[in-house]
Design a protein around this nucleic acid. Sequence first.
DNA 1: TTGTATGCGTTATCAA
DNA 2: TTGATAACGCATACAA
Lengths: 338, 338
Amino acid sequence: MATIKEIALLAGVSRGTVDRVLNNRGGVNAETEATIRRIMAEQKFTPNPAGVALAAQKKKYKIGVILFSKMNPFFDAVNQGILDKAHELSLFGCELIVRRVAYDPQAQLSTIRALVKEQIHGLIIAPYNSESIASELNQLSTAGIPVIALNSDVEGAHRLAYVGPDYYNSGKTAAALLKLMTKGPVHLGVLTGDQKILGHAQRFNGFLDSLSEESRFHVVAHEENFDDDQRTYDLVTRMLKKHPEINALYFLTAAVYGGCRALSALRAPKELCVITHDEVPTTVEMMEKGYVTATICQEPLWQGAKALELMFSYLSDGKQLSQELFLSKLSVQIRETI
Amino acid sequence: MATIKEIALLAGVSRGTVDRVLNNRGGVNAETEATIRRIMAEQKFTPNPAGVALAAQKKKYKIGVILFSKMNPFFDAVNQGILDKAHELSLFGCELIVRRVAYDPQAQLSTIRALVKEQIHGLIIAPYNSESIASELNQLSTAGIPVIALNSDVEGAHRLAYVGPDYYNSGKTAAALLKLMTKGPVHLGVLTGDQKILGHAQRFNGFLDSLSEESRFHVVAHEENFDDDQRTYDLVTRMLKKHPEINALYFLTAAVYGGCRALSALRAPKELCVITHDEVPTTVEMMEKGYVTATICQEPLWQGAKALELMFSYLSDGKQLSQELFLSKLSVQIRETI
DNA sequence: TTGTATGCGTTATCAA
DNA sequence: TTGATAACGCATACAA
């Protein structure tokens, strides 16, 4: 591994000049610059990260993070992934401001503005899909504050990247599991969250598209639960009483716990095929009790870590990202694997 | 973040003395040591990794790695995990010697000895389960070269840790998938690898134990394929011809490709429920074609990275590990999630 | 346009 | 038993 010192020696210049070339500071004679670049290439010079880190301790990149509130424990894992990565990057001057607010355009809007006042250099956000948010994010981008969409996306907003699952495919996966885990006619109850959230709508489409390929599936009841446990408890109770033929349930988003509590009051474990998403503690509990058959996971830790990694490398290295979409892997968990 | 300098100032001593205490070099007055330790605790002092890395550039920890040969592509991913982590640790003087040899006691034995001659400081190995290997590893341990068992384990050998899956549970998971994905009587063909490998035997036990809980399962054919594709092709062909009632297959280990090629010659896709382990490229291909229903994965990348991380922190920090068993998570992949 | 000096936090060597 | 000082590789303020 060559060092700046060695490059300087070989080029017959001082370390300072090499540094100027390396970091594109300008003010270097074109010829000397060419020589230095040639020698750096020859020696395959890469800056030593330890040296960089040590010298750049005082530099600070302040990165704002806006996630859904603690009502939704799924974001605990996303948050954890961000914190892990932040710890790793703290050496290099990465500073974080995390806000967890309601999934609501007004709350998000005011939080974005508050963070901008705190002089953040970049914003990572799980955005509500609305015009007001989109235009606010566009303003940020033009003001030189890059934005990364995490876990959910906005229509019509310029952002550096989207990091999260392929929602359409996650819906298809749910349908595929139902196909694999049932035989004969299936009478299905479906609980969706809030169709105003872009990913939820996409997931539902993927689910229905895939299901329609086989005629044995019948969605006999479909309710929007707005991720509320109490509401879901009531909805599922009514659903099962009104449609005793239901032999499978699909929870498109959150509030699995409320739904399964209702289920457990009316049916035995394993009597229905129940498909859910994500691996929050309450879902794990219901899985252990036999009320959730399978859950589809989307690597929340990876999502958080990746988003911060991308943002930080963009801010510090300044170079554009290779892609716009960074999709997390999906996997299935059952009782034995949790 | 406090620094050594600050600690020294607060304790009224020099950096050198703080360093002696910090790294347990001895030769420090008991009272001063106590004071320094107290202050370090008060200030929650943690050494700055950048400083450590920069100062310890010349230190080299040479770590030997012995994995199964390239015949088994599963270990490609394990190897990749190790390389990723090695890259991350290269700053701190981590040097690697990777050998991929046949899963055979003689080959392993001579490779171990060759690595010892190369002056390795630690050994990470996917060990063959035999007395000769066990005693060799014990000799290493007593000679001060720590050993970590990766992905498979040895009986009767002292090793720092085992990093890998819970094989018994992975067998139970396979059985659970069969239970979920079939209805009515199931006539099962099973292909096992080499029962001399500890994990394979455990996995088979987990599978059979779990299956025996339901009387509808009948293992009508069971063959040992020694992970050989051609052999498996022949075995499966004969198996399906002799037992046309077979409606499910379980591949306990490798050579899924050969088996599925045989299957595809005799049956339509999705006609049988086929459960496999791991996510090697050939299995992915057979999954896309519809000949593999589900595969159980065990985080090979994590396993490799974790093993090296543990070994390196043991060598450099010198402290004992918190646990002996580091089990990888299991997850299920189906066609839609690969 | 270029060179020099200094500091980041830790470790190691030498001197006291 | 302790202290002072010079590296390690890079960045930067200042001097020329």
